[in-house]
């Protein structure tokens, strides 16, 4: 290497060292800008040194050029670091300029109705057991609503549900159970459906009754379904829905379209069974009517009761929502009052 080349390399080394010191020692943005102009400016020291590359003999020029570029990169990197560091430091040093405790700009918060959420959660659990969701008409014939379900029209069992008649043999369905018959007419077993929907009864609107209310019906029909499977499936649901520590009990009941029939109680979720107003001091809350599908229902829809068995159940999501959220009056669910819906959202 020649004299000129070597001395330029020395000059670049010094320039790099001094430049890095100048940048790192700048301390504020003004001094940093001065350092930048001094070293990296159009007429700065690096430009000056690079201008001298032309005087270097050709064979060393490449090496010197590379060195000059390396110095430039190093200085630029240092400059960028320092700029960032200084701006952070300045921001921190100056303290908050905004009172960020001021309220945020908010949007309206939407939400699902608590009954919808109960229905969805029930559905999810049974979907895991192979059930599919179907819906049916709210206006029904008396055949589907009563006759097909083994409820003779002139029978005390019909007293259990006071009916809105729209026409001689047309009613607002008193339960979602007519879908049992509709589904079994349309599909061969294995049938497993869950039917959410509204049902109607001539009850006056009071804290625990509504003339229209949600029900969710379940039906499972196949070969080889027995009471053991039925009870185990429902118990599985209870644990999933109400929690592992919830106890349940099956006790005899009566529905014309199931036999054996059972009502399912769960230990009171409010008092855990010790007795409180929610469970009327019994420690138990009834959540479900259920049972093995009555052979008469199979016969009504043309399914061989000697070959197929099954179970059916019905729940009132509104009542479950009331227990879950501690809602004392059923009417609150249907008023659409904003404060209520926002609480539940």
């Amino acid at each position: 290497m020649t004299e000129v080349g070597a001395s330029l390399l020395d000059r670049l080394a010094a320039l790099e060292e001094q430049g890095l010191v100048a940048i790192r020692a700048a301390g504020d943005s003004d001094a940093l800008e001065t350092a930048r102009v001094d070293y990296l400016g159009r007429n700065g020291r690096l430009a000056d040194a690079m201008g001298a590359i032309g005087t270097v003999e050709a064979k060393a020029r490449r090496e010197v050029g590379q060195r000059a570029n390396a110095v430039k990169t190093a200085l630029l990197a240092a400059l960028e670091d320092e700029t960032r560091r200084l701006s952070d430091a300045e921001a921190a040093g100056k303290g908050p300029r905004l009172d960020t405790t001021l309220p945020a700009r908010r949007s309206w918060v939407g939400g699902l109705h608590p009954v919808t959420r109960v229905i969805d959660e029930i559905a999810e659990i049974f979907q895991d057991l192979g059930f599919t969701r179907v819906e049916g008409p709210e206006i029904e014939t008396t055949w589907y609503n009563f006759t097909a379900l083994n409820i003779p029209l002139d029978h005390p069992a019909a007293d259990m549900m006071d009916t809105f008649y729209l026409h001689d043999d047309v009613v607002l369905r008193t339960h979602t159970s007519p879908m049992q018959a509709r589904v079994m007419e349309a599909h061969e077993p294995p049938v497993r459906v869950l039917v959410p929907g509204l049902a109607y009864r001539r009850d006056s609107f009071d804290p625990s009754h509504a003339p229209a209310f949600e029900q969710i019906e379940g039906l499972a029909v196949d070969e080889g379904i027995d009471f053991i499977e039925f009870r185990s499936s429902i118990q599985h649901f209870v644990k999933q829905f109400f929690g592992k520590d919830t106890r349940s009990r099956f006790r005899p009941s009566y529905y014309p379209f199931t036999e054996p029939s059972a009502e399912v109680d769960v230990s009171c979720t409010v008092c855990s069974g010790s007795g409180c107003p929610t469970c009327k001091r019994t420690g138990w809350i009834t959540i479900m009517g259920s049972g093995m599908v009555d052979p008469a229902v199979f016969e009504a829809v043309g399914i061989d009761p000697e070959r197929y068995t099954g179970y059916a159940f019905g729940m009132g999501p509104a009542r479950i929502a009331m227990v879950r959220h501690g809602i004392p009056d059923m009417r609150l669910l249907y008023e659409g009052e904003l404060d209520f819906l926002e609480q539940m959202a």
Partner: peptide
């Protein structure tokens, strides 16, 4: 443990 079955619906 018999709980899951398939459905034709």
């Amino acid at each position: 443990d018999r709980r899951f079955r398939t459905s034709s619906v």
